[in-house]
Simulated assay, not measured.
Amino acid sequence: MSFQAYLDNIKTKTGKTPEDFKKLAEAKGFIQSGELVKTVKATEITNWLKQDFDLGHGHAMAIYATFKSKPE
């Protein structure tokens, strides 16, 4: 499965885009000034996505990867 396919499946399941998740992560304090807070672990984010949005580990990691990527 391609990375884009993961993101498409997440949008279908949750109705949310990576940008939507980024805004939610900012509200939770995982992201500040557009960047991941250095003390936040991937596990904290993936656990949140699994619990609140019923994502699997791979899909949660795909969202985490979008948080880590630099805007183009």
Results as ranks from 00 to 15, higher is better:
1 M>Y: 05
1 M>K: 13
2 S>W: 00
2 S>T: 11
2 S>R: 11
4 Q>P: 00
5 A>R: 15
5 A>Q: 15
5 A>K: 15
6 Y>M: 10
6 Y>K: 13
6 Y>G: 00
6 Y>A: 10
8 D>M: 10
8 D>L: 09
8 D>K: 07
9 N>K: 14
9 N>Q: 13
10 I>H: 02
11 K>Y: 15
11 K>I: 08
12 T>K: 15
12 T>H: 11
13 K>Y: 01
13 K>A: 12
13 K>E: 15
14 T>E: 09
15 G>P: 09
15 G>Y: 05
15 G>K: 09
18 P>V: 05
19 E>K: 11
20 D>I: 02
21 F>R: 11
21 F>T: 09
22 K>C: 07
23 K>L: 13
23 K>E: 15
24 L>E: 15
25 A>H: 07
26 E>W: 03
26 E>L: 03
27 A>G: 06
28 K>N: 10
28 K>S: 06
29 G>M: 07
29 G>C: 07
30 F>V: 01
30 F>R: 03
30 F>S: 04
31 I>S: 03
31 I>R: 04
33 S>N: 15
33 S>P: 01
34 G>F: 01
35 E>Q: 13
35 E>I: 08
35 E>G: 04
36 L>G: 06
37 V>H: 04
38 K>I: 04
38 K>F: 03
39 T>Y: 10
39 T>D: 13
40 V>S: 06
41 K>R: 11
42 A>C: 10
42 A>T: 07
43 T>V: 14
43 T>A: 14
43 T>W: 04
44 E>W: 02
44 E>Y: 07
45 I>K: 02
45 I>N: 02
46 T>P: 02
46 T>K: 00
47 N>Q: 13
47 N>M: 11
48 W>I: 04
48 W>P: 04
49 L>S: 01
49 L>T: 04
50 K>D: 06
50 K>A: 13
51 Q>H: 13
51 Q>L: 13
52 D>K: 15
52 D>E: 15
52 D>W: 08
55 L>F: 03
55 L>I: 03
55 L>T: 08
55 L>G: 01
57 H>Y: 14
57 H>K: 11
59 H>G: 07
59 H>F: 06
59 H>N: 06
60 A>Y: 03
60 A>Q: 01
60 A>V: 05
61 M>D: 09
61 M>I: 12
61 M>H: 08
61 M>R: 12
61 M>K: 12
62 A>F: 06
62 A>R: 08
63 I>R: 09
64 Y>L: 11
64 Y>R: 01
64 Y>F: 15
65 A>Q: 12
65 A>N: 13
66 T>H: 07
66 T>N: 10
67 F>I: 03
67 F>L: 09
68 K>W: 00
68 K>R: 13
68 K>T: 12
68 K>A: 13
72 E>G: 13
